[in-house]
Design a protein around this nucleic acid. Structure first.
Lengths: 220, 220
DNA sequence: TCATAATCTAAACACTGCTTAGACTGGAGA
DNA sequence: TCTCCAGTCTAAGCAGTGTTTAGATTATGA
């Protein structure tokens, strides 16, 4: 049942307990889901007594909010790598790449992602670092959209954030795989098509009128 | 602290405990958030002992999955009211209306909505009724998209589902209100603009080329 | 009427988050 | 080197949780 093995240590002091608690918690979420996360369990995985975590985190929510904040930082980096340098004019391709990066992040770091969008776990109102890290990530999208020259950048920024997040959530919940089976497609390819379509519709909104595929072409 | 008052009843048998447990649970989520939900607390709200719910639900997840399934049924009805009758050709307006109905549902039934998309709570793999109810709701979107005559209906259906869900989640988490303040707009109007934009981009994808607003018009 | 099934209570188990008191120890100042 | 202290950890305990079991109560239907 133990994810880590929780082997005993020889020194009384752990040395880097705070970091190990974070990592053990992320491992636990990825292995058994968020429902399996308890502070006592995480402490056990780290080979430490149930009270030890409270010297590094005020409470359970503090540990989870630390994971959430770090997740937003990692996401920001990924999004920044996907968008072009500031000053460039951007288009649908860049939007597609960015949304794809969003979804890819959720699949590569499912442990972080699952905590980031469950505010009842990390209580962001008590932990402003989460808010700030989340704002920074959204800012990347807002900047990108601002360079698009679209009529209503705020609305589009919100929509892209929502779509990226929704696709990621569907992918993590297994609904993507399930639907792909129903439709007899490959889930990754279905996702790629959805992401590409978003870029094309953004081009359409900006009036780029890129080759958006002739209508009424059924896809097998 | 009690949401209901949990007044004593005079009869030994409750009479309609199953339904009251469901309602008490939804009330509790809406009043204090999902973190406050425990079976014992729900039983207390219903004025009943901690063991009583187990004669109506196998476990905690079963109660939550019942709420989830009913939520999907209500959502399906709302979506069906928003889309046109089958056989009609549909356009961006209908898509906008449907996405708006999705978001409106989440705001009108926040208790149900918060359970519907947290699979670790309702364990849908153990409760097929949730899966089926969810599939039925998604089917409404899929049918709508199928009548659009778009090149890749599967990808678009997935994207619309993700976007509607993402917007709803943002609205419930308070992130919508927060961003609206930052941008000095009304949250409801921001949402309406986002939803309208989705319809227009769908029209653009289908080649309807509805008046999509001139590009590079900054919005105040 | 009366047995039976359904419903509920009471008590108990192992688990949880969190607090408190005390044991240990690494490191700075003498 | 010794000492002391702040930081780190353990042990024990409280209240709350999900769930099970045994038994009390009541509705139902033959």
């Amino acid at each position: 049942m133990e994810v880590n093995g929780s082997r005993k240590r020889e020194t009384y002091h752990h040395g880097a307990l705070r970091e190990e608690l974070v990592q053990a918690c992320v491992r636990l979420i990825e292995a058994e889901g968020i429902a399996a996360v308890s502070l006592r369990r995480v402490a056990r995985e780290a080979g430490v007594s149930p009270g030890a975590p409270y010297h590094h985190f005020a409470d359970r929510a503090a540990l989870l909010s630390a994971i959430s904040a770090r997740g937003f930082e990692l996401l920001t980096q990924d999004l920044l790598s996907a968008v072009g340098p500031p000053g460039t004019t951007s288009g649908g391709d860049e939007v597609s790449r960015t949304v794809a990066a969003y979804v890819a992040f959720a699949r590569r770091q499912p442990g972080h992602f699952q905590v980031m969008f469950r505010p009842e776990l990390s209580e962001p109102e008590k932990h402003p670092a989460v808010q700030e890290a989340g704002d920074a990530a959204l800012q990347v999208l807002t900047d990108l959209v601002g360079r698009l020259g679209v009529a209503d950048p705020h609305a589009l920024g919100l929509t892209l954030w929502a779509t990226g997040h929704g696709l990621a959530a569907l992918a993590l919940d297994g609904l993507l795989t399930q639907k792909a089976e129903t439709w007899d497609t490959d889930p990754d390819e279905l996702l790629a098509r959805a992401v590409g379509q978003i870029g094309r519709s953004v081009d359409a909104l900006t009036g780029h009128t890129a080759e958006s595929g002739r209508a009424t072409d059924p896809v097998g």
